[in-house]
């Protein structure tokens, strides 16, 4: 069960503001996490509490294909991201690396900065603990469930090649 405070974002949050291009030659996600959302809010990394949740409006993660965007969110301790829609490369990167994401229509309207949220990843049930309203995320297609059940795309590929799990 995921439980934490909400960090609220608007629409079209691009991967350049999640992690700026100038840092993309740093391969260590922990180092990158120090610069997460730096160009939107330089104090974000120091104020964010691991286990908290991002609730954003549509098209979260648009722009660059940089996998370090979901990787550095994960390394910063972001427990989940909920939004009405995700940019497609960000969506597949998150599935592939195991950052929990939840697609829910209009979700941004029902959350404010700092409210408490609980998410059950198994059922996709998202509850605003401050208002007691609940929402259900769209289920993942079966193939993506398989990738997630294998523990990410790398493990899925290992199984395909007859290797053991990482």
């Amino acid at each position: 069960m995921i439980e934490g405070s909400v960090w609220k974002f608007g629409r079209d949050i691009d991967t350049d503001v999640i992690i700026a291009g100038r840092y993309c030659n740093i391969p260590d996600p922990k180092e990158l996490a120090k610069h997460v959302f730096e160009d939107l809010d330089p104090t974000f990394a120091s104020r964010f509490v691991p286990g908290d949740v991002i609730v954003a409006d549509s098209n979260f993660g648009c722009g660059s294909s940089r996998e370090v965007a979901p990787l550095c969110l994960k390394a910063a301790g972001v427990a989940a991201v909920a939004a009405p829609s995700f940019a497609r490369i960000f969506y597949r990167n998150s599935i592939n690396i195991g950052l929990p994401i939840f697609e829910i229509p209009d979700i941004a309207k029902f959350f404010e900065q700092g409210q408490k949220v609980r998410i059950d990843p198994a059922t996709g049930l998202v509850t605003n603990l401050s208002t007691s309203q609940s929402f259900t995320a769209a289920p993942f297609p079966e193939f993506m469930e398989k990738i997630m059940a294998a523990g990410g795309l790398v493990n899925y590929a290992s199984e395909r090649l007859g290797g053991s799990k990482a």
Binding site: S64, S65, E67, I89, R92, N93, I97, V154, A157
Partner: peptide, 25 residues
């Protein structure tokens, strides 16, 4: 592993950007 891989549609290919894990696999 670059979002602008979609450029190659200009010569009638199906081309799309993916992340690094997709590239590795």
């Amino acid at each position: 592993g670059d979002s602008h891989t979609c450029t190659y549609g200009g010569v009638g290919a199906f081309a799309t950007g993916v992340g690094s894990t997709d590239v590795a696999v």
